[in-house]
Computed example of a mutant assay.
Amino acid sequence: MKITIDIDCTAQEARSFLGLPDVAPMQEALMEEIQQRMRKALQASEPETLLKTWLPASLQGWEELQKNFWNQMAAAATGGGGKGGKSGKSGE
């Protein structure tokens, strides 16, 4: 014998029937507090500071990589070369 019971009730009705606490007011208060903290943090932070905080250290080295790239390009354009060329043996 198999018996099936369908209960049609809201989540709030089910919680109160089972004796569970109503946590909706607490969730709303916590969400409001989180929103206020995020607004304060965003207003106090500058975009550059946020990017440095969010990006990992390996990506923060892009500025130096770009500088090195442009220095090498400038040296190649002027014919200086600097580090390029032969393997360091003299007289070849």
Results as ranks from 00 to 15, higher is better:
A74K: 05
A41Q: 13
A29N: 07
E46W: 09
P25Q: 02
G85I: 01
C9H: 04
L18T: 02
Q35P: 00
G91E: 01
N68L: 08
D22S: 08
G85S: 03
A76S: 11
R37P: 00
T49S: 07
S90F: 08
K89S: 13
I5Q: 10
I7H: 02
G82E: 01
I5K: 14
Q60D: 05
K2L: 11
Q43S: 12
K86D: 15
G84W: 05
Q36K: 12
A77E: 09
C9Q: 07
G19T: 01
S16F: 11
W70C: 07
G80R: 09
I5C: 11
L30F: 10
N71C: 05
N68I: 03
S58R: 06
M26I: 15
S16H: 11
V23E: 08
E28G: 06
L18Y: 10
K67N: 10
G82S: 04
E28N: 09
A57N: 07
W70L: 13
S87K: 14
E92P: 02
E33N: 09
I5E: 05
K52P: 00
L50N: 02
E33M: 10
G88F: 00
L30C: 09
A44L: 05
T53E: 07
E28V: 05
K52A: 12
R37T: 07
E46P: 00
K2N: 13
G88P: 00
D22W: 03
K86E: 15
M38H: 08
A75D: 02
L65R: 15
I34Y: 08
T78M: 08
A11V: 14
Q66D: 07
M31T: 14
G88C: 02
E33P: 00
M26L: 12
M73F: 09
P21V: 04
A24I: 14
S87Y: 09
